[in-house]
């Protein structure tokens, strides 16, 4: 018996491999471009590099699209693994079944963020008549490429180390003790969350990209704790059901995909202006309004479940 025979896992790894191969091809070209690129040259070699540039762009854009689909697919596959892992009732059990799971998930989100930043820089690069950001975008891609290779290794390590005989802990155990940083209580965290949310919006309004960057990173972690320990319980309508994964399941109308989706997309638009600025020294602060938009939807969605519960039952959990 092996997890590698689960059909969704076979598909997942196969597609990851296809993407990896395409990226290896890109990286070979990228290294050549980084080495020999000279925009002012008029020889046929330079022109051929210019043409290869478009191949790499195409492959990376394709990679991004597929990686986003695969990320969702990955989370879904974790659910598929639950029947095979003793004790696991939802993705919590599977992802926490070995030390690679949680870092891998965070790492994947980070790679998606970087790919998104790459995409924006690429757009700006193609919009300039001299391809001024070309080298920087390819240095960035080289970093992403290395990260993607490590990601593939981590995935293999994670899947091979999923225990199929020893029982694992699931959400009912993992999140039962309030494992909050700095000895904060759940209510503290919720207040901090709302405060950070308002600060972020103010900072966005004044287009302070570096402050928004820091606030968004803080917000991402605080939002994680608030959703897991507070808002989640209102989604489940059970005070003791604390889990960041269960509401991804059909029983809760897949609402988790929206909750986490709005948060991640929002945070992405919050941190990318600063990243873009630090890479290509160009102000691209207009993304901040998407940050405000998505974070507001996220906050509204979370608050909605609390209010709904209060209206229906007249009390808080």
């Amino acid at each position: 018996m092996s997890v590698f025979l689960l059909d969704s896992l076979v598909v997942f790894l196969f597609i990851e491999l296809v993407i990896l191969i395409l990226n290896v091809i890109s990286e070979v070209i990228v290294l050549r471009i980084l080495r020999y690129w000279d925009f002012d040259a008029s020889n046929s070699f330079q022109y051929s590099l210019e043409r290869q540039n478009y191949l790499v762009n195409t492959i990376i854009s394709f990679t991004i699209a597929v990686k986003i689909i695969l990320f969702i697919f990955f989370v879904k596959s974790l659910d598929d693994l639950t029947p095979l892992v003793p004790g696991a009732m939802c993705a919590t059990g599977v992802i926490g079944s070995n030390i690679y799971g949680n870092p891998l998930l965070l790492y994947k989100i980070f790679i998606l963020f970087l790919l998104g930043v790459w995409m924006i820089i690429n757009k700006l690069d193609l919009a300039s008549k001299k391809l001024i950001f070309l080298k920087k975008k390819y240095y960035l891609f080289t970093v992403i490429f290395i990260m993607i290779c490590i990601e593939f290794g981590l995935e293999i390590l994670f899947f091979t180390n999923i225990p199929l005989t020893t029982p694992v802990f699931c959400c009912s155990v993992v999140f039962v003790v309030e494992n909050l940083p700095f000895d904060l209580t759940t209510i503290d965290i919720v207040y901090i969350f709302y405060a950070l949310f308002i600060l972020t919006i103010v900072s966005n309004y004044y287009k302070k990209i570096s402050i928004s960057f820091i606030l968004n990173i803080l917000l991402m972690f605080v939002a994680y704790y608030s959703v897991t320990y507070y808002f989640g319980t209102y989604v489940y309508e059970e005070p003791n059901h604390k889990c960041p994964f269960c509401f991804l399941q059909k029983d809760y109308n897949y609402v988790g995909y929206f909750i986490w989706g709005f948060l991640f997309v929002g945070v992405f638009f919050g941190i990318s202006p600063y990243l873009i600025y630090s890479i290509i020294e160009k102000n691209y602060e207009r993304l901040l309004k998407y940050n405000t938009l998505f974070l507001s939807i996220f906050t509204a969605l979370c608050s909605f479940f609390v209010i709904k519960y209060y209206i229906e039952n007249g009390v808080f959990l």
Partner: peptide, 8 residues
Amino acid sequence: ISKLPDIF
């Protein structure tokens, strides 16, 4: 126009 990238 001789130096324009392909898109332009």
